[in-house]
């Protein structure tokens, strides 16, 4: 039996990944004891869910026991657990705190819809945004947290599907989760997959020499660098290599941060001036957590963010 601690936090993702490794290595049946669990932040919950899903995918019996009634009902309302995952209530009536919004992404057709759905749910929790959402269709210039939220979610989902499910990892799980903390004006979101990870996506690229998981993560956040970018003589360049870069910049402009785990590396704010890097227990795939803060998020300026990377801001484009 694998015992879950009271707190599954992004700040202690190494501890969460250690639990995931334990789950991976434990003999059948896989039983997680959640009787002490009080808080599960988005990145941690996604990592756990993706691990349990992978166990089920390979035919193992998986149970989560000791849940509080509230958390069990909450988990069952989310679209992230497979129907066959056994959830058992414990003796606690209270205990789990916070509300989570979470989804599994089934395929590329599903990706855009899910990203928008979860962004809408989170934005609707913020009182000042409720009017903005209903008026968005009529007045697209209204500044709202919905746009940056949906922007980040759809970009990260796109990455997880296009890169994470590459290199033979076609059945990798992609899980997303978000939380809003009103007192602190903090929005926390995460997209986690158990696909091929950053390092594997750069293998075979002669022009990009990446030898470690940490270097692969940093390379992924470098502007105009993508594992699917190849301005060769006869091949079409596919990706511009700015998706993760702009998501990071959005987070930093909102006084938030980005944390990335892939392989044995955990990096916060990759390629930014305050980047921090640590070793972690191994995570197959990529786990990204983004924190955004209000009210700074309301003032994020896309022109300012994108102009940093624009090689020709005065290009004559016909806007009518």
């Amino acid at each position: 039996m694998v015992e879950l601690p009271p707190l599954l936090l992004t700040a202690n993702i190494a501890g969460v990944l250690k639990i995931c490794v334990q789950i991976d290595e434990t003999a059948d049946p896989v039983i997680c004891d959640a009787s002490r669990l009080i808080v599960a932040e988005p990145m941690a919950l996604c990592a756990l869910v993706v691990t349990l899903s992978r166990m089920q995918r390979v035919g193992r019996s998986v149970k989560v026991v000791g849940l509080s009634r509230q958390f069990k009902q909450h988990l069952e309302s989310l679209d992230i657990l497979t129907a066959s995952l056994h959830l058992a209530e414990g003796d606690r009536n209270t205990g789990y705190q916070e509300t989570l919004h979470a989804y599994r992404v089934k395929n590329e057709q599903h990706g855009n819809e899910v990203g928008n759905k979860i962004a809408t749910e989170i934005a609707a929790l913020i009182p000042s945004q409720q009017l903005a959402i209903s008026a968005l269709e009529a007045l697209p210039k209204i500044n709202s947290v919905f746009y940056p939220l949906a922007y980040i979610f759809t970009e990260l989902i796109d990455n997880a599907l296009r890169h994470g499910r590459g290199r033979g990892f076609n059945n990798a799980s992609v899980c997303l989760c978000a939380q809003y903390h009103p007192p602190r004006g903090l929005i926390r979101l995460a997209v986690v997959d158990d696909g091929c990870g950053f390092l594997a996506t750069f293998q075979g690229r002669g022009d990009i020499q990446v030898k470690s998981h940490a270097e692969a993560i940093r390379t992924g956040f470098r502007p105009f660098t993508s594992s699917k970018r190849d301005v060769g003589l006869f091949s079409d360049a596919q990706h511009q290599g700015l998706g993760l870069t702009i998501c990071r910049d959005l987070a930093l402009r909102s006084e938030g941060n980005v944390a990335v785990v892939s392989g044995n590396s955990w990096i916060t704010n990759p390629e930014a001036h305050d980047e921090k890097s640590r070793l972690t227990p191994f995570w197959r795939g990529a786990a990204l957590s983004v924190e955004l803060r209000l009210p700074a998020l309301n003032t994020v300026n896309f022109f300012e963010i994108t102009s940093r990377y624009n090689p020709d801001p005065d290009l004559p484009i016909r806007f009518i």
Binding site: F224, F303, P311, F319
Partner: peptide, 27 residues
């Protein structure tokens, strides 16, 4: 660029269009 025109763009969309088009022209 001579054959494409863009209408109804928000400021955000214009910023992103400018970025992508300029960078791809460079490529």
């Amino acid at each position: 660029l001579e054959r494409l025109a863009f209408s109804g763009c928000s400021d955000e969309a214009k910023a992103i269009l400018r970025l992508v088009i300029a960078a791809r022209l460079r490529d």
